[in-house]
Design a protein around this nucleic acid. Sequence first.
DNA 1: GCCGTTTTCGGCCCGACTGTTTTCAGTCG
Length: 575
Amino acid sequence: MMNKNEIAAVLVEIAEILEIKGENPFKVRAYYNAARTLEGLTEDLSALIQSKQLTELPGIGKNLADHIIELHQTGKLKEYDKIIKSVPEGIFEILKIPGVGPKKVRVLWEKLGITSILHLEQACHQGRVAHLEGFGEKTQSKILEGIAQIEKHSGQFLYAVADDLAQTILKKLEKHPKVERASIAGSLRRCKEVVKDIDIVAATEDPKKVMDLFVKLPEVEKVIAHGETKSTILLKLGIQADLRCVSDKEFPYALHHFTGSKEHNVALRSLAQDKKMKMNEYCLFDLKGKTEKLIPCKDENEIFAKLGMEYIPPEIRENMGEIEAAQKHKLPKLIESKDVRGLLHCHSTWSDGTASIERMAEGVKALGFEYIGVADHSAVAKYANGLTPERVKEQFKEIDALNKKLKGLHIFKGIEADILPDGEVDMGEKVLNSFDYVVVSVHSKFNLTSAEMTKRVIKAIKNKYVHILGHMTGRLLLRREGFALDIKAVIDACADYGVAIEINANPLRLDIDWRHIPYAKEKKAMLIINPDAHSVSGLEDYEYGVSIARKGWLTADDILNTRSALEIMKWLKRK
DNA sequence: GCCGTTTTCGGCCCGACTGTTTTCAGTCG
């Protein structure tokens, strides 16, 4: 049995192999398209198979439907087993190097017998790659840079990936009768955008039994350590997970300790010392009397209270001023998911989304929201099927009709317009003015100098039709650094010209970086949590944006889309 | 491999950029 995402991953692998083998590029694309359709699927796959409706999905014909059914029902695919044997395993990692695509992989493999990154790195150092036809000195050094980048990020995982897996494991542990309570700890609990492992703390009087369950989980690839109170496993995705078992009494201290950050803990322990107390991972002691006296705490809340401060949410435990603020009882009331009332910046099938506006709207409604903003790509983004002015008019008609039809939900007409290399905004004033709102983002020419890029982006911010600055740096976590940009200058401009700064909640972006958010708040810039959803399930990504907003100390008042549709309309029209 | 009011064959998105070349191939979004 395989779920839709696992099946999609197999189809992608097949596509990659076909590409390397130089198969018909349209056949290759058919596999990619089918994978994408599956990932964006909202209907239940089993039901679709049963009612024989699979071939009604876009991009899925007889052949791919058969493949999908075979994978879904048996977890295997004969054709895949055959084709996977025809290429060496290591080529997939070579394909991940930026600038190296299927054609280059094939040449490296055929001409130099290179089948792994390690091989490739050696060959580059020996200068053998530069001599290949179609390659050269620059390609060779770019490959080395790419490998260095991959190695720098290796052992790191996107928050969303790690969190998914961690929640699955946590649920299984919590079900164990001997587990009294359990929680995720570490950087994952602090909602860091990338994490290197999963930390879990469990309270139990029978650690041995709980540890046994942990090391025998079906997700385990390898047991690295298996002790009485601490075990480490390597999960199949390559992520390590640590479990620490403590008694129920010790649990609050252990949870706090293993949540960190290290810097936060050091600062807090030194503060405890000042107050004649001692803190470690198992308890809090009162040192005022002649003998050490245990200070009982039933949860983290009490620990902070005993230390004379208000509760510090895990997201902001980075020793960036939270301890001082908590002592003065001046921590902001951080935004929560329930504060968000609608989602702007969503894509539809009008550009590169996988769902119609109606389905996206229904998805937003199902999440309990009051409004959705459709912001498809603009004309210049041809690769993403960007809207032409003519198609914009048609899209408006569809939205108008849906607004009449759908009760209790308002659809805003937006556009994600490209910031052109010279800072002009795609589509021109007249078209831009016809939208309820305009999101602007950079999607091209990433290699400008910081000064050039800053000038370009600020010019777009000054455009009077612009309301929101999308994914400020264009970063893709663990894949691509953001482009060079004077972030403070850009934040200043957003604050001055009343442009809201997007917290792009796509787990691969989480852009603007939370470290810059306090500066934006200081400058009184408006922020907005946008899922940048390309599918119905992508709408739920807004929650990652909430976590990032919390890491940036933001309250509901700091975020535009905690307001009602009416208030949003007013805000958009104030320009 | 998919698709079809130009329909069962023949097209399928396309332009920018880079580095390799001397007119283009590969990669990317």
